[in-house]
Design a binder for these strands. Structure first.
Lengths: 158, 158
DNA sequence: TGTTTCTCCTACTAATCTTATAGGATTTAT
DNA sequence: ATAAATCCTATAAGATTAGTAGGAGAAACA
């Protein structure tokens, strides 16, 4: 399971990505909108800033904005920042590789073989999809519903 | 990351699966072979027994054996037993589903959409592969190496 | 210049989870 | 009987999680 930090972090980023990129977004606004404890959120946004995903403006009317475009903020990066490795075993992690203490023959380990497949499957999703994809999918989901609610809006009038 | 329990559990099961299914396997033998603390292993094997994966024989010359064939012990089942849900968000878990506390519109959640894809990818591997597949892959890996070590053993003599 | 409103930073804490260990009760073979 | 094994519960140290507390520092603005 994701930690609250990772989940809150993703939701906060999503919220920021939806706002005007020129206007600083207040912690308290995010806190309110996404039901994230304000003080907790502060530390999370700070982490995101230190990682180079967000930039901040201090003082009155300050707040946060994305430092890099939403399409370049991968989900994997955010998950790793807060929760560490995506892999389920250290020996199959790309970014945090460590051999298992007592593994005699890593090359022959059936477990490694299987969990490497799992890591590949999840990594290929999380490192490919970005903040932007969250937004795109959300729009797609909403559109889909509004379409199926309306009566046959298939072809727009000329 | 997997917990030690899950990892130890899988390794223990693998060890047991490799032994004669008629002869009870001692905790101490597994502990020694796989470098798992004996007392810790005891509780793990007990869990596996209570879950119906292992059966035990008490008393002298007692020990553990598989209750069901290796091909029916999925990795997913063992992981879930020790570590809970495979999903990264409660709202995308098949076996432990829970709505997110403050999620207003689960149907429109971009995060859910993406992590449901992740859950599907990992679940489809972990619930399809079994203890038997670990053994099969291990054998395949060893064979591959021994082949490439030998000089062209491609076609056996008639 | 002083006040307000933000971020920034560190330290702390309560609760839970992890990774075991301890000590014996129970069961069975010999 | 005794030895050797599982069974069961309790305990405990350490790490992690999910926050909270309290202010320092920066900028806008009156």
């Amino acid at each position: 399971m994701l930690s609250k930090k990772a989940k809150y972090g993703l939701k906060a980023l999503e919220y920021i990505a939806k706002q005007d990129p020129k206007t600083p977004v207040h912690t308290s606004a995010i806190s309110l909108a996404e039901s994230i404890p304000r003080k907790f959120l502060e530390t999370i946004l700070l982490d995101l800033k230190h990682d180079g995903i967000l930039k901040s403006k201090q003082g009155k009317n300050g707040g946060y904005n994305l430092l890099i475009p939403p399409s370049e903020v991968t989900i994997g990066r955010v998950v790793r920042l807060f929760d560490g490795p995506i892999a389920l075993l250290p020996c199959v992690s790309s970014n945090y590789y460590e051999p298992c203490e007592d593994c005699e023959n890593e090359a022959f380990c059936g477990l490694k073989n299987i969990f490497s497949e799992v890591r590949e499957a999840t990594g290929s999703i999380l490192d490919k999809l970005s903040l932007n994809d969250i937004l795109i999918r959300e729009r797609a989901l909403k559109k889909k519903t509004s379409n199926s609610t309306k009566a046959k809006p298939r072809s727009p009038k000329k």
